[in-house]
């Protein structure tokens, strides 16, 4: 019976893939959102003139074209993929009005005089002043249709909702590889998140300013199912990627408090050791009744004895993140 079920499942999957392939190869337009469609379509009275026309006037364009040719969006994109090659007018809109009145002869004459012939940029799409969603839509009109694997949570993600567009992070004209190098992420992110940058100046911090950990180790700028664009669904899963010894599950847990490491730790920086939100012993005394504060005869404890019990709770409760060994009384006091 199980074998038949497997065969049927495989057949169904095969048929689905076959159907999907056939569907994809049909020519059909991508349907952008009406309001934004106008913004990213450019002047409707303009015609497409082709990238070669743009290149003929300006050597700066040559460099950009060469970078695109070497990238996955340009000539490296195989025709079989069925996706359009990205060229100048894919993003900037049709260019016939921009070059109206400009002839090869005029460009050559100006070149001889040392004058750079400028086209009429105002007739192209005003990318710099587009709303962020429209700016992103220029990229998404292809990337939403070519199985870009990291955009699943983009549309209602924190960055998209807060008017951050693709080109705020990805430099489109600076080479074939648009990826941000990990060691450059902090500088880039701190341009907007200056308050977070200030945390990294505190004595206890993750080595982000030192260039050893990156914002993208914990956060996914393209969107996430969790808060704060975390790379994993829970805070604990993010932290225990590196701090695996604290993950558990353990026999003796700190209730569900340890599910969110941020109950005791702050991720970016703290004046306190080990990125603690509050120093020990106050940290623990926020929730727990203290050890006995007096002696058996009711006198205040000596300073030495107070130091023994009230310096660092984790001197004794050293398995505070969870343990598999019961404490002497048989409970989970995180001592053993």
């Amino acid at each position: 019976m199980k074998r038949w079920l497997s065969v049927i499942t495989v057949l169904l999957l095969g048929l689905t893939v076959l159907y999907a392939c056939t569907e994809l190869k049909r020519s059909k337009p991508i349907l952008p959102l009406n309001e934004y469609e106008k913004m990213i379509a450019g002047r409707l009275d303009a015609e497409y003139v082709g990238t070669e026309t743009c290149l003929s006037a300006c050597h700066a364009h040559d460099e950009i074209k060469a970078a695109f040719d070497a990238s996955t969006m340009g000539a490296q994109l195989r025709r079989e993929s069925g996706l359009p090659l990205v060229d100048c007018e894919s993003c900037h809109g049709p260019g016939s009005l921009a070059i109206k009145g400009i002839t090869r002869k005029l460009v050559e004459e100006n070149n001889k005089k040392g004058i750079k012939t400028k086209c009429n940029y105002k007739t192209l799409i005003d990318i710099n002043n587009l709303p962020a969603i429209a700016k992103s839509l220029i990229c998404l009109k292809c990337h939403t249709g070519n199985a870009t694997f990291n955009l699943h949570e983009w549309s209602a993600g924190t960055h998209a909702v807060n008017d951050v567009s693709c080109s705020d992070c990805h430099r489109i004209h600076e080479g074939p590889d648009l990826k941000v190098r990990p060691k450059d992420t902090a500088t880039m992110c701190f341009k907007c998140h200056q308050d977070i940058m200030a945390y990294f100046k505190m004595p206890s911090h993750h080595p982000v300013p030192e260039g050893k950990t990156y914002c993208t180790d914990c956060h996914n700028p393209h969107g996430s199912t969790s808060e704060k664009l975390l790379r994993k669904p829970t805070v604990k899963e993010v932290c225990t990627r590196c701090h695996g010894e604290k993950e558990g599950p353990f026999l003796y847990e700190h209730a569900d408090l340890t599910e969110d490491c941020l109950n005791c730790h702050t991720p970016h920086g703290s004046p306190n050791n080990n990125l603690l939100v509050v120093r020990e012993p106050f940290l623990c005394l926020q929730c727990h009744q203290s050890h006995r504060i007096n002696t058996a005869t009711g006198e205040p404890k000596s300073i030495a004895l107070k130091g023994f019990f009230f310096t660092r709770c984790t001197n004794c409760h050293s398995q505070i993140h969870g343990t598999d060994i019961p404490s002497p009384g048989g409970t989970g006091r995180f001592i053993q």
Partner: peptide, 15 residues
Amino acid sequence: LMYSTFSGDGSSTPG
């Protein structure tokens, strides 16, 4: 903050 105590009678009885 909440502190636990001995009763003060010289024994280990909690107060």
